[in-house]
């Protein structure tokens, strides 16, 4: 237990919380933006995976991390556009559409990974780029706190901005009102002249944009390569975080942080010699437990009300 405590109360551990929460923040903001507009995007996982692959590959092709990021975002938004086209114009069930995109991403990335790297596991043979870490002047010098919040990957700071952006967009802008109105009651929104399909398309594209950043972080920040199914459930954890955050950007960010702690914990205790197969399940157990507790509380509240 002592060794455990020593492991937890270090700047390194708190630093790692922000690191592992970054992709969750992006994905959960993607979940908020789409769900608020009434188009639950369950393909966050797949869109992030596509972005992670595109980021790795195009940063290698152009020898530039920035180009990698650009294409990561582009591909994730394109995947979102495909999903929007089928679900909104062709009336595919949005859940099934999400399943299709996830399956496409999971197999498709391996397919292309094999074509470009002749490997079905990882892309380590390709010299792809990583996005830079940023040392914040002054703050970085503060003892204890400095090493925790400074020196992160640039996308970690973008993730924080993404939360603020989502909050501002939804609460303060006309587009945000349209998104929420469509999600609340689309017939009503339609009757006052808001185009439902257009608004929901925007919601899905924004959701894809968030996934683009999240995926880029995975292959160009969290690690410096692409590996098969490397998102490993983060898109689903983000959905759980969004449900528990009641679709509110800030609440969702808080629950994402909670799951980030669980994730960081599972990485940290892996060094203690606990059975690694079980330790790896900690983030998923935490999510399952969190979702269960949340559902039970919501159920009780409804029953009493």
């Amino acid at each position: 237990m002592n060794a455990f405590m020593k492991l937890i109360f270090t700047s390194d551990f708190f630093y790692s919380i922000f690191r592992v929460t970054t992709p969750l923040l992006f994905a959960s903001m993607g979940a908020v933006l789409s769900d608020v507009a009434g188009v639950p995007n369950i393909a966050l996982e797949g869109m992030m995976l596509i972005a992670a692959f595109a980021g790795m590959y195009f940063s290698y092709v152009f020898n530039s991390a920035l180009m990698g990021l650009l294409f990561a975002v582009l591909f994730a938004v394109a995947a979102a556009a495909v999903m929007a086209f089928f679900t909104l114009y062709y009336k595919t069930n949005i859940i099934l559409g999400g399943i299709a995109i996830n399956s496409l991403a999971s197999g498709g990335t391996i397919f292309f990974l094999y074509l470009v790297a002749h490997d079905k596991g990882t892309s380590v043979s390709l010299a792809s780029k990583v996005l830079p870490n940023i040392n914040i002047p002054l703050i970085g010098d503060i003892p204890i706190l400095g090493p925790v919040i400074s020196g992160h990957n640039v996308l970690t700071y973008v993730a924080v901005l993404a939360v603020l952006f989502t909050w501002y967009l939804l609460k303060k802008t006309p587009l945000g009102y349209h998104l929420r109105a469509v999600g609340e009651k689309k017939e009503a929104a339609d009757s006052v002249g808001i185009s439902v399909i257009k608004t929901q398309t925007i919601a899905l594209l924004l959701s894809g944009l968030m996934c683009g950043f999240g995926g880029a972080f995975m292959s160009m920040g969290y690690v410096s390569w692409f590996s098969r199914d490397m998102i490993s459930g983060r898109g689903w954890i983000a959905l759980a975080a969004e449900a528990m955050g009641m679709q509110h950007p800030l609440g969702t960010a808080a629950t994402s942080l909670l799951f980030g702690v669980a994730d960081a914990l599972s990485n940290a205790v892996a060094t203690l010699g606990w059975p690694s197969d079980l330790v790896k399940t900690i983030p998923y157990c935490a999510t399952l437990a969190g979702l269960a507790i949340f559902s039970i509380r919501a159920y009780r509240k409804n029953k009493n009300a």
Binding site: G97, A100, G107
Partner: peptide, 9 residues
Amino acid sequence: AILQSIIIL
């Protein structure tokens, strides 16, 4: 996998 997603969609 690519074919499967097309079929589902």
